[in-house]
């Protein structure tokens, strides 16, 4: 069996701001196998986007990767120079952003933006690059791709722009795509179309996917495995059905509990008490302890990762025993 496409080990990305160090990502480890879809779930500010940008080496000052390792197809990315990183970006590692209205340059035509992406990594003629761009547009379901290449971004709808961004990500058939909430800004029908499209393309080309989102419904439908982030750490990860059906960590449980659909109409929704802690002043032990109903004296120490039958969680008092059949 082939090794993982992506292996993140103990990654730490901190932001050195004027009023203190913000530990946006602190000790995150996960792996993605070839063709696998990993859902990275968490609230706003839990560090999931920073994790994504860290993998691409796109953390701008005052932020910086302070520790850990990121291996793409067995090659270390942390500590690479900017020019070495550039050879990876867009080639074997691509990214799709959250807001399709903002990711395409408004004053450049689609063909300019796609052809430059091809030429950034392959020494081919402009004609060949154009043909590849048109092919990629056709692949993501844009009709009449040769003509649409001459359009400007503002002549596309939001959903179409996101398709263009996905097509750009697919240009070099990367082994991994990091998708940072790419459907959040789209309306629900477009969202499901895009999801189906991405799922199909990744399955066909064997591209692995890290899908960053706060939407558990999306994860349930798309991901093979899920990692739940809280305050810069992964608190639980495992197979998507396992984690969603039998959450071990009280935070995961709370997250699933607050999805409105699971309750009878008119009943009060569950909410996790309190709010996310400031990343500048994290509690000593478990970051979730102040909001947790199961917390006790033991939680004053940061819980280590417990491995149990393909599940991993950071909790002394797991809510459900992993592997216990329902």
């Amino acid at each position: 069996m082939a090794g993982p496409v992506l292996a993140v080990d103990n990654l730490a990305t901190h932001f050195f701001t004027r009023d203190g160090v913000v530990k946006s990502v602190d000790g995150v480890s996960f792996e993605v196998k070839p063709g696998e879809v990993l859902g990275l779930v968490g609230e706003s500010g839990s560090g999931k986007s920073v994790t994504g940008f860290s993998i691409l080496g796109l953390i701008d000052p005052p932020g910086r990767i302070v520790g850990g390792s990121i291996q793409l197809n067995g090659e270390e990315l942390v500590g690479r120079s900017e020019s070495e990183m550039r050879k990876v970006r867009g080639k074997s590692l691509a990214m799709i952003f959250q807001d399709p209205m903002m990711t395409l340059n408004p004053v450049l035509r689609i063909d300019t933006q796609m052809i430059e992406a091809v030429l950034a990594h392959d020494a081919v003629s402009e004609k060949a690059a154009r043909a590849r761009a048109a092919e990629a547009l056709g692949m993501v379901g844009i009709p009449a791709p040769e003509e649409r290449l001459f359009a400007y971004p503002h002549q596309f709808s939001g959903g179409m722009r996101q398709r263009v961004a996905i097509a750009i990500a697919l240009l070099h058939r990367p082994s991994l795509i990091i998708a940072d909430e790419p459907t959040t800004a789209l309306d629900v029908t477009i969202q499901s179309q895009i999801l189906a499209e991405v799922q199909r393309i990744c399955a066909e080309s064997g591209t692995a996917l890290v899908w960053i989102t706060h939407d558990l419904a999306v994860v349930a439908g798309l991901a093979d495995r899920v990692a739940v982030m809280y305050a810069g750490r992964i608190v639980e990860q495992g197979g998507v059905d396992d984690v969603l059906d039998r959450p071990c960590h009280p935070y995961t449980q709370g997250l699933i509990g607050s999805v409105p659909g699971a309750h009878p109409a008119g009943a009060r929704l569950h909410a996790i008490p309190g709010s996310t802690p400031s990343l500048k002043h994290l509690p000593q032990g478990c970051a979730f302890a102040p909001r947790c109903t199961r917390a006790d004296a033991a939680c004053a120490v940061a819980p280590p990762i417990t491995m149990n039958q393909g599940r991993a969680y950071r909790c002394f008092h797991p809510a459900a025993q992993a592997g216990a059949s329902a």
Binding site: R89, G90, A94, D99, M102, L104, A117, A165
Partner: peptide
């Protein structure tokens, strides 16, 4: 974002 996306495409700084 379009500048960050351009970087994510692997474009050179001068481009």
């Amino acid at each position: 974002d379009y500048v960050k996306f351009a970087r994510a495409k692997g474009l050179s700084q001068s481009r």
